[in-house]
Simulated assay, not measured.
Amino acid sequence: MQSVQPGLARGIDLSQFNGPQDWPALKAGGQTAFALIRATDGLSLVDTQLAANAAGARAAGIPHGFYHTLALPAVPPADLPGFGNAQAAAFLAALDRLGGYQGWMLPPFMALEGVPPAWTPEQAVTLLAQFGDSVDVAIGNPAQRTGIYANVNTLGVLAAAPSVRRVAVRPLWVAWWSPTPPPDVGPWTAWTVWQLTDAARVAGEPRPVDADIWDVPAAALPYPPGAAGPAAEIADAAAAVTAAQTALAQAQAALARALRAL
């Protein structure tokens, strides 16, 4: 897969296990260009920090989106499509209570943290495809197509499924804790988001946190309504410099006139 290029957006991903966040401090720290926030896990668990993280990221003007951790029981359910739909419904219901998935949010992701031994690769792909399709239909925005989070070992399992391309066409958030680029795995040859480590030190967060990089510059990310992205912040700074230079020139001219009058 591709290596990291200069200027790409760097961010974090969070869940209740990271505890409460100081979102203004994360914004001021300048090292959190985006955040991926856990919303739900399985059929019923709602992250205890979901509401606080969603409100905090929006108030701080940090681009953000949400992810669901897929729960796979030891034995695959008989109705895999129904099981995928049920987890998608839990994810969407939790976000509906916060106002729903908005068009300015980052795309959602479904996190697959492994495939139990009793599952075939095809069964895992079926679950992923059903969850992703259900969420996509509910959101109704092609620009927010649901992506998949997995490490390279899990991708290797999925790659053995005959219908793997049903999920390989989705954005990939790959967990690869190494300074070298992730290897290609079957049909996966590029990442959208790369989780670099689970122990980063980020300005504004005193504890270790998962660090990620998005394959676009921060200016290309969608920002919450009313938030100033990097381009606007640069423009504001340039305008402030121009205003200061104008004020200085006026003060110098006034001083020169005063000296001539002496």
Score class of each variant (00 low, 15 high):
Pro76Met: 09
Tyr101Thr: 01
Gly99Pro: 03
Arg97Trp: 00
Gly114Arg: 14
Asp136Leu: 05
Arg145Cys: 02
Asp136Asn: 13
Ala86Gln: 14
Pro108Ala: 03
Thr48Asp: 13
Ala55Gln: 15
Gly132Ser: 15
Leu98Pro: 04
Pro24Ser: 11
Ala57Arg: 07
Ile37Arg: 02
Gly56Val: 03
Val137Ala: 11
Val125Asn: 14
Leu98Asn: 08
Arg58Trp: 03
Ala93Asn: 09
Ala28Cys: 01
Val157Arg: 11
Leu26Val: 01
Arg97His: 09
Gln87Glu: 15
Ala88Thr: 10
Ala51Asn: 07
Leu106Pro: 05
Leu92His: 03
Leu72Pro: 05
Leu158Ile: 10
Ala59His: 02
Phe91Pro: 04
Gly140Arg: 04
Ser134Glu: 14
Gln144Arg: 07
Phe83Met: 05
Thr32Trp: 04
Gly84Lys: 14
Ala59Lys: 15
Gln31Arg: 10
Ala90His: 14
Asn151Arg: 06
Pro20Ile: 07
Ala90Asn: 14
Gln49Thr: 12
Pro73Trp: 12
Pro20Gln: 01
Ala89Leu: 13
Leu95Tyr: 08
Gly114His: 10
Ala88Leu: 09
Val135Gln: 09
Ser134Thr: 15
Met105Pro: 05
Gly99Cys: 04
Tyr67Ser: 00
Gly84Glu: 11
Gly132Asn: 09
Pro107Arg: 15
Gly82Lys: 12
Leu70Ser: 09
Gly19Arg: 13
Val75Leu: 10
Ala33Val: 07
Ala35His: 08
Leu158Asp: 02
Trp104Met: 10
Leu158Val: 06
Asp96Ile: 02
Phe109Pro: 01
Val137Ser: 07
Leu43Ile: 03
Arg38Val: 01
Arg58Ser: 12
Ala129Ser: 15
Ala143Gln: 14
Ile62Met: 04
Leu43Asp: 10
Glu113Cys: 02
Ala161Gln: 12
Gly156His: 10
Ile139Val: 15
Tyr101Lys: 02
Gly114Pro: 00
Gln21Asp: 00
Phe109Thr: 05
Asp47Thr: 10
Ala51His: 08
Ile37Thr: 11
Gln31Asp: 09
Trp104Gly: 03
Leu36Cys: 07
Gln130Asp: 11
Thr32Leu: 04
Pro73Val: 14
